[in-house]
Structure formats: C-alpha cells, structure tokens
Design a protein around this nucleic acid. Sequence first.
DNA 1: CGAAAACTCTCATGTAACATGAGAGTTTTA
DNA 2: TAAAACTCTCATGTTACATGAGAGTTTTCG
Lengths: 280, 280
Amino acid sequence: MTDLIPIGKMAAANRVTIATLRLYDQMGLLRPAYTDPDSGYRYYDIKQTSRLDFIRYMRELGLSLADIQSILEKEDITLIEEKLIEKNNQIHQQLRELKAMHEAVERTIQSIERYRKSPASGTISLEFIDQRTILYAPCKVNFYEAGIEAYEKTIQELRSGLMEKGFPQLLSYSLGTSIRKSDFEEGRFVADRVFIFGDQHLKDYSSYISVLDSGMYACIYLDNFNDEISCALRLKEYCREYGYALDGDYICEELTEFNVFDMKQRNMFLRLQIPVKFRK
Amino acid sequence: MTDLIPIGKMAAANRVTIATLRLYDQMGLLRPAYTDPDSGYRYYDIKQTSRLDFIRYMRELGLSLADIQSILEKEDITLIEEKLIEKNNQIHQQLRELKAMHEAVERTIQSIERYRKSPASGTISLEFIDQRTILYAPCKVNFYEAGIEAYEKTIQELRSGLMEKGFPQLLSYSLGTSIRKSDFEEGRFVADRVFIFGDQHLKDYSSYISVLDSGMYACIYLDNFNDEISCALRLKEYCREYGYALDGDYICEELTEFNVFDMKQRNMFLRLQIPVKFRK
DNA sequence: CGAAAACTCTCATGTAACATGAGAGTTTTA
DNA sequence: TAAAACTCTCATGTTACATGAGAGTTTTCG
C-alpha cells in the first residue's frame, strides 16, 4: 500500500542530489525503506521526506552530520537542545571573527587606497595631523647604524610580544619609528622608539601607550626605505629655510607595508614627519 | 653572512607548524632560501619571515592559499585590492547567512523550551492570544478523512511552493490548520486551510497572507495527532458548558514538529484553539 | 518480446588547509 | 661514537558532498 520510489525520484522530490541520499544511507542517517538485496537498488517511502527535512534543517542550523546522527539515534529532544546551544555559541564566536575579519579587510583596502593616492616620492607638504595613539617599544639597537636587519628584528620582537597577548596582527596597522628631538636637531640619527599607530582596540593590549600631539607637521613622502636619511635631511633643510621650528620628536611612518614584493615596484610608502611651530 | 635556520626553528619563531611550512614550500608560496640537494633539508632566511607574515595576514583576511599564491606571483597591489574587495562581498554574504542561522537556532531553542514547559496533554485553558500573521494555502483534500498521508502531502506542496520562492525552511516555523467556523459548529471536520505562523519576514514570500485576530481563545493541549478530533470535541463541549460562543474558525496549531522520532516519546505538541466571545 | 533509453549500483577520486603518523635518513649533542 | 633530536617523503584523515568510470538493472517503446 505504501508506494516506494527509487532514489532518483526521492532526490528530485526533495531537491537533494542522489549522492547525498547515498551518503545519508551509508552513514545511517536515512536508510531507504527497502533495499533490493539483489540489485542493491534503494527504494524510499515518501513519508521519509520528513526525516530528510529534519536532517536538512539541522544542517541549515549548522549542525554536522555526525551531530545529527547522534540526535537521530538517541531520539532525545534534550540532546537537540544541547547541540543547538553549543552551536549558538559557535555562531557567536564566528560572528565575532567575521566582524574582525571585515574590519581588517576594510582597513587594508583603505590602506591600499591611500597608497594609490599618495603623492610622488619626494613631495614635501605641510599638514595638520590629528592626535594619534601609539603602542610603542623602546629601540634597543640603533638600526640606522645596524642596518635593516636590526630594524626587522625589533619589529619582530614587538610583533611576537603582542601576539602573545592576542593582538590580531601587525600587518594591518601602520608602523612608525621616532628619533628624539634633541638627537634629530643635532643631526644624530638614533632610533628611539618603534611603534604602531592604533585604533580604539589598542588600549587593551599593553601599557606602553603614548600619544602623539595633534598639530602641524612638515612631511615628506617617499617610497624607498634607503632614502630615509637623505629625505629627512631635505625636510629639515626645508624647515630651516621657511623658518619653522622643531616642536617635538621626528617621526617616520610606514603607511603601507607590502614589502614582500622584493621592491620590484613601488610598494612601500613612507611619510616622514617633523612637528613644527611658527614664530608669531 | 645571512644565517640560515632549519625548518623547526623557522616554525617555532613564527608559531607555525612544520607541516605548514612544507606545504607552503610545495605550493611555491614560500620556498626556503636554501634546500640541501642531498638531504632535502630546508633552510630558511630569517628575512623570509616577512613573506610568511604576509601570507598569514592574507589568510587571516580570509583569502585562500590559491589567491595568495597568485598575488605573490603577480606582485601586483591592484590584484590584492581586487581580491580583498571580492572577499569583502563574501564576508557580507556570510554575515547575512550567519545571522539567519542564528535567528533560526534561537527560534528552534525557543520552540523546544516552549515544548518543555507545555502543560500536560489534555489540559484546557482560556488564553488571550495576540494577532498572528499567517501564510496559508487552501486544502485541496480533507485530511480528516483522507488520513495523515494527505496532510503530509499538503504540507509538502506548501513547502516546495515556498522553497521555490527562496523561503528559508519550514521546520523552524510552527504549522497550523483551520476549519471554518460554520463547519466546526455543526461538527463537520473539513480542513479549510493549512498555514505557517510567520514573523516579520513573511510578507516577502507570498500573497497568501492572512491575519488571525487577537482575542480570547479556548485551548486544549495534546501530544498526539490522532487525538485531535476527540480533543476538539471536548473543547467544544467545554465551551458550551461555560457558555462561550464561537467567534471564528477553529485552529489546530502544531507548536513543535519533531515528528522524526517515530513517536516513541512525546515529541509532538499541539494546541487546539477556538476563538470565543462572551455574552455581556 | 527485444532493444534502447534511463536509471542505479559500487568504488575511486577531488575539494581546502592543514594535522598526524610511519619509517627512514641526517644533524647535533654529549 | 652513540644517542638524542631533528628532518625527510609519503600516506592518510578531516567535512559534506560532487563527479565520473564501468558495470548492472529497470523502464519504455516499437
């Protein structure tokens, strides 16, 4: 009296593939009502649709086939609830992760955009820059002398120190270094601090937090790490020429750090900054 | 002069597993600076850390290794941006899906909770029920006569009709059926409509929308489909006894539909409802 | 009734990004 | 020089299927 249908019809009736039905059979999630012992053909009862619906619904809720299997075996509503509550927590977690990912992607796109719209290397400007919060570490070695490897190493330490505290990732934030005003004034290139420019999340991660004052900055843009000193000197000269007085530490800001491309193209982008004040 | 480190140190220094480094080598994402041709041992330059960082950062942004590979091959920032924008869209999509999943899980948990707190089968109550929006289809056959299979078939049609329009899934909503007031009054069990109780999303999906008035309902709870008619009659009798007059169509609401468990336990939960008015 | 068409079977493989382990060879340390 | 520590390749497992090969079965049509 109950009419049985072969796998193809069952699949079509439920918008499932045949392969899926076979898998469910094999896993014991949904055994066909009758299997021909000779041919091995599977025949389903239409009423099994409801069980299939249940499986698919649980899948839509994000449960794994293994979870569903145990639910169907135990036939216990409490178990469903447990699994769902567990799933709910997972979903919350995933939502957080996705949002963080989204922010990071946005930030990176912004940074690429900024790079794209950056002025030609060597351009000097006078800009007002808002207050910035930074997370810094002191420089143990002076990489202006010790070379780029020392710089990398310092960054590396900052990085791993932060990673231990669960800080997302460094690449998405712009990096900076500074030279103390007195040193810079007297032409000594002595790295003082290395830091990252942060956003609102920053304060959770360390006590080495500082603030860079807002104000006017004389800036020069460049795209090659090796030109920093010469550009910095040019910028200093420029300030002297126009009568701008130094008003704080010198800053080198690494606006984008796509330095994985072996510098074949102009992929790095720096902005050197000298805070200035004007004689009134 | 550049000191090379074996794979173990490289892995430890970057909090990556050895297997990962080997995979990246194999895929060409990060080739060790030197590979011993005899032993096959991989030796990395510390500077390769930056490339590894880049890879891991791109991974954190959700890009696939294949994407990263093409980015690293082309060495083109524009390509990064393209991939990121694409990724951003994917993230939006995923966020939508996750939120929908979350809603569905919550709804299901609620429904299980409700089931758990439901009164004993046979309990009669008088309740105020708020206005409800339903999405209905007319019943072509009277399943009170034709049997549960006909009911299932009707549901099936409703289901597949909705699925074509992209409606999420049925299991997460409670189902209902109704009998016209005149039929019910005269003791004729003739199914009139089958419907789902919906939420705010409902209106997007069909024109077969109707509203069930708010008001007082005489209700009886039960956990077995087969008892519907007898319980409905009891409820009707109850109304007569207390002098409540029928004020609309009879409704059978299937509050939870975990009928995959072969009814071994009390997993189904119905609430029959008769809208009533009082003589003043 | 027989042939062709349509259907179904099992088994193998691929997907993404690794994790894990076996068995053999290499380097470092004591 | 032997043991300990490290590394190699290759195979397999993970998830929920999709895809395809080659062989067998059922249905349909003339």
